[in-house]
């Protein structure tokens, strides 16, 4: 019985351990490479709303929709864009500011008068007559009641709006998928500008390689890009494939940073797999 209990405890501890590793991620155990040299200037790619970003019409549409946004500002997903916006800078601290003296207590009636001053139209004091004071106060009270009612209405509206916002958006999934697809297209186009390989090499049309990258929060590479499932690249008989794979890795490094992807990979926990295909480099 005691042995069983120990077994359960051990099992639980191990499970927690595995879950922790899954959460934190094994990659985080690797050492980050030293900061890279100054990045090379790279043309940013505009991110379209549609996945067929290569078509010139689509680019025009995008320009019409958001002509005032630069690429850096027009990050693809509006929902998460607000999260990525920089926070306002804190105001500079001012030393030795005298503490404000406590205001003298104001009676309810005076408060009322103050509110009247705010809402009522100013009139020349010479025209104010004592006999009309009571009527002025009555009017002020009425206005106060109206203002309170309007405030309540506004509050109710805001609550209703919040409730509406709290409801699950039936199109959120579709929007997310479109945003991800658009980001994939943008990254694909971006990499196409960085990837160079000789045309017409024998068998290049059948070659594929996957390069995996992990990113820092600023979009720069957190470590040297990895090849996924390529086998032994030092095999002398695979010299051509090695060159192909290295050209893909070089492209990924040249295209750094990947700021646009950070909205999709929050907190730098995920990775991007770039699947390079050589079909385009066939000589035909």
């Amino acid at each position: 019985m005691k042995g069983e209990r120990i077994g359960w405890v051990l099992s639980a501890v191990l499970h927690v351990g595995v879950a922790t590793v899954a959460l934190v991620g094994l990659p985080s155990l690797h050492h980050e490479r030293p900061a890279p040299p100054p990045p090379i200037d790279i043309d940013f790619v505009k991110i379209a709303d549609k996945t067929t970003a290569a078509a010139p019409k689509a680019e025009k549409q995008q320009e019409q929709q958001a002509p005032q946004h630069s690429v850096a500002a027009a990050e693809p997903v509006p929902e998460t864009a607000t999260e990525a916006m920089p926070l306002p800078k804190p105001a500079p601290k001012v030393k030795d500011i005298p503490k404000p003296t406590p205001k003298p207590k104001v009676s309810e009636r005076e408060k009322l008068r103050n509110s009247v001053r705010v809402h009522a139209k100013p009139k020349p004091p010479s025209r104010l007559k004592l006999k009309n004071i009571s009527s002025v106060i009555d009017r002020a009270l009425k206005e106060e009641q109206i203002a309170t009612k309007e405030g309540k209405k506004q509050e109710e509206k805001q609550v209703a709006k919040k409730k509406e916002e709290a409801k699950p958006d039936p199109f959120a999934g579709i929007r997310g998928r479109i945003a991800a697809a658009s980001l994939r297209d943008a990254l694909s186009q971006k990499l196409a500008k960085c990837w160079t390989f000789p045309r017409g090499a024998k068998g290049v049309e059948d070659m594929q390689v996957t390069v995996r990258i992990y990113l820092r929060p600023d979009g720069t590479l957190a470590r040297i890009p990895e090849f996924v499932g390529v086998g032994d690249l030092n095999d002398p008989s695979r010299g051509f494939y090695r060159t192909f794979a290295e050209s893909a890795r070089r492209a990924v490094q040249l295209c750094e940073p990947y700021k646009e992807a950070m909205q999709y990979l929050p907190k730098g926990t995920g990775y991007i797999d770039f699947n390079f295909s050589g079909a385009e480099f066939a000589g035909d």
């Binding site: 991800a180 990499l191 196409a192 995920g270 295909s277």
Partner: peptide, 17 residues
């Protein structure tokens, strides 16, 4: 937990290296 993104790169440039 490990968010990932898969991107297909099917085009490149033939500019001289």
């Amino acid at each position: 937990a490990q968010a990932q993104l898969k991107v297909d790169v099917t085009r490149g440039t033939i500019d001289p290296v």
